[in-house]
Amino acid sequence: MLKIENLHAAVEGKTILKGLNLTVNAGEVHAIMGPNGAGKSTLANVIAGHDNYEVTDGAIYYEGNDIIEMAPENRARNGIFLAFQYPVEIPGLNNTYFLRAALNEKKKFLGEPEVDAADFLVIAREKMKLVEMKKELLRRPVNSGFSGGEKKRNEIFQMAVLEPKLAVLDETDSGLDIDALRIVSKGVNALKRPDNATIVVTHYQRLLDYIVPDFVHVLYDGKIIHSGGKELALELEEKGYDWLINK
């Protein structure tokens, strides 16, 4: 589904990713771990197509096509979803209206019939249950005045509605208490299917107790320096990153 080859990317002229390789197949969950400043969030943003990040070398193949030149909205419509580390607030823009517009953009793109307001409400109510989100949040402006936990739940709720093929969760666990973490993880697990894939970017092993990865990768200084199974996360928790960095 996703194949990243020799990816180099820079922010404001500073090179962050320095030859990153990663392959993700349908049905898999990959965890990207690593110390601060290693390039984890950069990787997430580059996959989503954020303009601030300049790809200077390498390629990102998604379903066989290089998407480096693809506009971010088209990546989204093609099924790439980024759950943001810091979901932004958009005052005055109704959550339901926003999400229905997004869903319909995707449907239009795929040549499917659009969803009207009534049908959308049925879909939304169903998907909200996944993350135990309060109904009133549907009527509120996007993320405005949401608590940290509510924002993260809203991200997973959006993911549930948009049904991406490739979801990238950028530090979804940051700022969550243990209950919220469990609920959010439950939502992510429920969305797992043989035909989709998830990349979980995280600092802490804690999240991986709930979202169990098939592969764990260590990102350091813009490259993946070590990969392993889910047991690697536990090892990292115990030993830190130094033993890999100095190897």
């Binding site: 909205e73 958009i90 005055g92 926003f98």
Partner: peptide, 21 residues
């Protein structure tokens, strides 16, 4: 970018943000 990542065009994103404002 948040709006675009959800599949909206940049024009629609700006218009929605301003109308919300």
């Amino acid at each position: 970018f948040y709006c675009m990542q959800r599949g909206l065009s940049e024009e629609d994103a700006v218009s929605m943000i301003v109308n919300g404002y």
